[in-house]
Amino acid sequence: MNRRPYQVIVIGAGGAQAQAMLAAAARGTDVSTWLAVDRRWREEARAATEALGITTREVDPLEDAVALKALLSEGAIVANLAGPYYRTGTQVLDAAIETRTTYLDICDDADVTLPMLERAEAARAAGVTAVIGMGSSPGTTNILIRAAVDYLGPVEDVEIAWTVDVADITDAAIRHFWHCFNLVEQDGTTHPVPAWDELNTKSVDFPGTVGSQTVARLAHPEPFTAPLFLPVQRAVNHGAITPLDAMRTAWALAYAVDPQRAHASTSTVDAAVAVFSSYRDTRPAGPRIGSGLQIDVHSNGNGLRFASGGVTPMEEATGVPAAAGLVMLLDGEVTDAGVLAPESLSPAAFFTALRRVSLGGGGLELYELVDGRVGERVRIRDLIAARAGQAG
């Protein structure tokens, strides 16, 4: 690492996912030389950050390119947790490459993933390691896919499905979720938000409290990165906000303010966010559904299925893997220069780092898939150990 005043600089550090990441990182490594930056700190978030021993600063480095590069020159690593990434991703990544600063983010926007990956050669030429999409999905999902492919060999299909409880959808998160309705082709072509009856939907049975849910095909980075970084022919992503009335409300507002159709002003979009927030906060109270995940990695229905369902908050599910990614960078576990998706990371090293930063628990299950049906249960540690043994 370069000798700079700060080991890690976190941009957007006052947000919910960044706060979870900082708390997790403090469980697994020394954070006394970290700098947390936010354009407008909430008092409780700033106090919580400083209680971890992290220096805070209130500034908006994204307003000025010179200020952004000056900030990044103070740190060996920058963690960009300021979304939406279709606005901030390439801006911070370009500054990191120019200042030769190691980079990490939790980018979950498909359309900007492609231009970020196109910076790979510039990053390699500068000797910069940039890990993009290091959250839950993408992030943990990519590494699970990598572990399965390492074990199975080349596969034809990867099918990802996830749900998020409406209670976890912050104002920032709903802006991203709306963006996911704009499907993105492999060449970067982006489509308008489809009509409700035109959504590609299916029913998925998640474990635990989540149960059977309807999910829709949504734009996400994994369908681009999995075939690029792994011997995978096709990948598709489906997602949802639960319960279904929340999904319908989110879709309706996304359709109304879709820039490809409505050319809505910033104030109109802000008003739509306020409408969704009011709906979220005033809808009839009910039992918390939680978040669900299912990943099928297979050829002709034969392979592996990862599945989870529970009440882990979205900020924890996203922030903790990001902390594990930073620990891997600090420990020298990721050394290749270039723009890397999480599929590039060692599953064994990731899960080792994850144990350091996690509170424990988690309900991820792994099963064999036989002719498209769930078979025998497999221990994830055995999957990782088997591949590690083959590599050794």
Rank of each mutant, 00 (worst) to 15 (best):
D111I: 09
V204C: 02
A348R: 06
T90H: 03
A26I: 10
H220A: 14
P194E: 14
G14M: 08
A161I: 03
R387K: 14
A13H: 11
G188R: 00
S308C: 05
A386M: 11
E118W: 12
A123G: 10
L329N: 15
A76N: 10
L144M: 14
T88F: 09
A79V: 05
E376W: 04
D270N: 13
V66Q: 14
A45K: 00
S32R: 15
V273A: 11
R124V: 09
M247G: 02
E159F: 15
G338V: 09
V66T: 15
E365H: 00
R87P: 03
I295S: 01
A96N: 06
G239R: 07
N142E: 00
I9V: 15
G15D: 09
N182R: 15
P342D: 08
I295P: 01
N182K: 14
A341H: 05
V164W: 07
E74A: 14
T141C: 01
E222M: 12
E222H: 12
A161L: 04
L62A: 09
A349K: 11
S137E: 05
T141F: 02
W41I: 10
F229R: 14
N80V: 02
F306T: 00
A322V: 10
D165R: 06
Y151V: 11
E43I: 06
A125S: 15
R42V: 04
S265A: 11
L81N: 02
R119K: 11
I169Q: 08
T266G: 14
A123R: 03
G310H: 08
T242C: 07
V273D: 07
E118C: 10
G188Y: 00
A126M: 01
V327K: 12
T129D: 02
E159C: 11
G28R: 11
A272M: 12
A65S: 13
W196L: 13
A337M: 12
Q91S: 01
P5W: 08
M116D: 03
T201I: 08
S344H: 07
P154V: 10
I106M: 02
E185R: 15
A120C: 12
V155K: 05
V215Y: 07
G372F: 09
A172E: 10
I169F: 11
D108F: 05
T225W: 06
R146L: 04
P138Q: 02
R4V: 13
A353P: 05
A122P: 03
V269P: 07
L152K: 10
P221Y: 05
A51L: 12
L52W: 05
A79N: 03
G53L: 09
T55Q: 13
A79P: 00
P347N: 07
T129K: 09
N2D: 15
G14W: 01
G309K: 03
E365F: 05
A36W: 09
A147D: 03
R234E: 15
M134K: 01
A16C: 07
R57V: 06
E58F: 00
G286R: 15
R87T: 07
L62K: 06
T170I: 01
H220C: 07
R146T: 13
A252D: 10
